[in-house]
Design a protein around this nucleic acid. Structure first.
Length: 606
RNA sequence: GGUCCGGUAGCUCAGCUGGAUAGAGCAUCAGCCUUCUAAGCUGAGGGUCAUUGGUUCGAAUCCAAUCCGGAUCACCA
């Protein structure tokens, strides 16, 4: 058993692929007397139609060795055989690919020594990361796009934690500004004292109604003024409602009591509504920042930047930074009246975050419409020598679009978060009832199950695609519960749990399995399972939950194939039964861990 | 116009640090429940990887040009 380099093979970060790399490097160096590295060749998993598990692609080595694929392959095989590694069962050379089959004993050993409950998680790396996500405006309810942001942020935080980071989740609440004043003005004019309570409306939706109302009336006023002969621009500036909103913003900044009171009251309604939604989707934060408290931050930094010569003042006393040497434009950082702009407070907040948390990685989950802004922010922070500015990372995700194009609140084409969640939960209920497998569940158990499944479908749907890419959501074709979906994986998990229950099997039941050989369906699961830690590492490195989603789906598929081909409880021998129970348990744990990293729960029965 | 992102099966998406015959899911069609949960499994059909040229043993993947779609370039946030 020469491959046991340490007791907990996987905690050493030593994967089978690395082991093969090491063996090949050694074989190359011995054969050619040069120093090769793992980067000089490539190892791929072998496709189903060929024999073996992993293959070494020989082409990249031909030039350096001066040999043909056949000759190089022969020499390599000879050298590898010389090493006498009991891990390798067979070598086969096909058209420039050196196919290696791993001994079944290795996979069984892997199963025996892997602690299923914690498998895949990496030990602490002593680094801290902050993930800022969600960042709602307090003038309207959340929509489908916000859900993508929330699910991504939560998942990335979990993935980084599994990669050994200490993670802080933060959220900047955009609770002030002209858009907030708009809904306040509209409420003052048109609500006649109505409240969420008096109208039986969820607070964020209630306030959102007045934001919409503002825009409707404002549009009408602009139209009227234009008919009276003003240009569009003039009309937009002079519309009474807009003037009122602007005045209210000034009053807010001056701290006028009646404005502050209304502001607090209406934001309070929104928070009550958000709380319900956040609780339902499982979003939580270690630290919430409010724009009303941070918007003045950054002014001092501008002063410091001026002294350092990073910024410069124009004649009208506005402050700028010239980013043309970096291929960008000139950017304003302080208005001529001395007030700060969006980016000013972001600079301030970036520094504050660093001072408070000393994070090594500073991740912002923000839509790709702000790519330019984030590029500028990072550049400015670097030029100001804000510590770790180089580790500001914009996790830029694409918009969720409808088949008709972007969602537009003004055109009523927004998919509301609460609505879609309720719809998913209802769909879960419908499926569950028509299958009738949990008729003995209590009402509480049922509603928990519906939420688990409905939200699972929803989250998986939004997380299974590459965050960077925009995605299209078709409300006509509701989100599926079959195939590449959350419920498919939840179902696979529940079926395994059913077996383990019947066998009264738990983690402590695990003993060393003495089996020597594996069926293809058994081995396929183990080969895939062994890659889990590497997959978590990749997801962390790429900040990409879809890697986990795809991985979990493939594992579930492999398990389901195994499930139909072989019986666990009626296995052909007692040893096989134990092997399959351990195999099933490991699969279930990996599926559960994967889903956990996506913020999705798994049911024991469904 | 400048910058950036994208274009892969009817639809939604993988694959993109170059490697074997380009993969899933949905939809369509054909099979599988007296056997551990059929939200499952097996199989079939379906492709000019936007176009053209280049790099090389090899290109969906890298480079260039073109076409199409999107984002962004505010003393808005």
């Amino acid at each position: 058993m020469g491959w046991h380099k340490c007791t907990y093979y996987y905690f050493c970060g030593m994967y089978i692929v690395q082991h093969i790399q090491d063996a090949v490097v050694k074989a190359l160096n011995e054969t050619f007397g040069q120093s090769f590295t793992a980067a000089d060749f490539q190892i791929n998993q072998i496709k189903q139609e060929f024999k073996g598990d992993y293959s070494v692609v020989l082409f990249p080595l031909l030039k350096r060795t001066g040999l043909s694929p056949q000759a190089l392959g022969d020499k390599l095989i000879a050298a590898l055989q010389q090493q006498g590694d009991s891990l390798f069962k067979s070598f086969e050379l096909i058209k420039g690919f050196l196919n290696i089959e791993i001994n079944d004993a290795f996979w069984i050993d892997f199963l025996n020594r892997t602690p299923a409950a914690t498998f895949g998680q990496h030990p602490s790396n002593g680094r801290r990361a902050m993930v800022e996500y969600s960042s709602p405006n307090t003038n309207k309810p959340l929509h489908l796009g916000h859900l993508r942001n929330n699910f991504l942020g939560w998942s990335i935080a979990a993935i980084l934690r599994a990669n050994g980071y200490e993670v802080f989740k933060s959220c900047i609440i955009n609770d002030r500004g002209i858009h907030i004043c708009k809904s306040m003005i509209a409420w003052k004019h048109f609500a006649q004292g109505a409240t969420p309570h008096s109208t039986q409306t969820k607070g964020d939706h209630f306030v959102g109604m007045y934001y919409v109302k503002f825009n409707d009336v404002y549009k009408a006023q602009v139209k009227e003024l234009m008919q009276a002969g003003l240009t569009e621009k003039e009309a937009e500036q002079q519309a009474p409602l807009m003037k009122e909103a602007q005045q209210m913003l000034i009053d807010w900044e001056a701290g006028k009591p009646e404005v502050m009171e209304l502001w607090k009251r209406m934001n309070g309604w929104v928070y009550e509504g958000f709380d319900v939604t956040y609780k339902k989707i499982g979003s939580d934060f270690d630290r919430q920042y409010h724009e009303s408290e941070t918007y003045l931050l950054g002014k001092e930094i501008v002063q410091m930047g001026l002294e350092k010569g990073v910024f410069y003042r124009k004649e009208d006393s506005s402050v700028w930074i010239d980013l043309t040497p970096d291929g960008l434009d000139e950017k304003l950082v302080l208005r001529k009246d001395g007030t700060s702009v969006y980016i000013t407070q972001d600079i301030g907040l970036a520094l504050q975050k660093y001072e408070q948390y000393k994070v090594d990685e500073n991740i912002y989950v923000i839509g790709d419409e702000q790519n330019y802004h984030m590029k500028v922010l990072k550049l400015i922070c670097e030029k100001l020598d804000i510590p770790n500015a180089k580790h500001i990372h914009h996790l830029s995700y694409g918009m969720v679009e409808l088949p008709t194009g972007r969602m537009k609140s003004r055109e009523g084409t927004v998919v509301d978060a609460d609505d879609i969640i309720d719809e998913m939960i209802q769909t879960a209920k419908m499926h569950t009832e028509s299958l009738g497998k949990v008729s003995d569940f209590s009402a509480d158990e049922l509603s928990t199950l519906y939420e688990t499944l409905g939200l699972g479908a929803m989250k998986f749907y939004l997380l299974r695609v590459d965050p960077k890419k925009k995605m299209i959501f078709n409300p006509q074709e509701s989100i599926d519960f079959h195939g590449f979906t959350g419920p498919f994986i939840q179902y696979s998990y529940a079926r395994i749990q059913s077996i383990l229950r019947k066998a009264s099997w738990d983690e402590h039941s695990k003993t060393n399995v003495n089996e020597q050989t594996l069926f293809a369906a058994e081995k396929d699961i183990l080969v895939h399972a062994e890659q889990f830690p590497a997959v978590i590492a990749q997801a962390g490195k790429e900040l990409n939950p879809s890697v986990i989603a795809t991985y979990a789906f493939n594992l579930a598929k492999l398990y389901n194939t195994f499930y139909t081909e072989h019986s666990v409880l009626q296995a052909e021998s007692e040893v096989k039964k134990w092997l399959r129970l351990a195999l099933s348990h490991l699969s279930a744990r990996i599926l559960a861990t994967s889903m956990e990293l996506l913020g999705i729960r798994v049911p024991e029965r469904m």
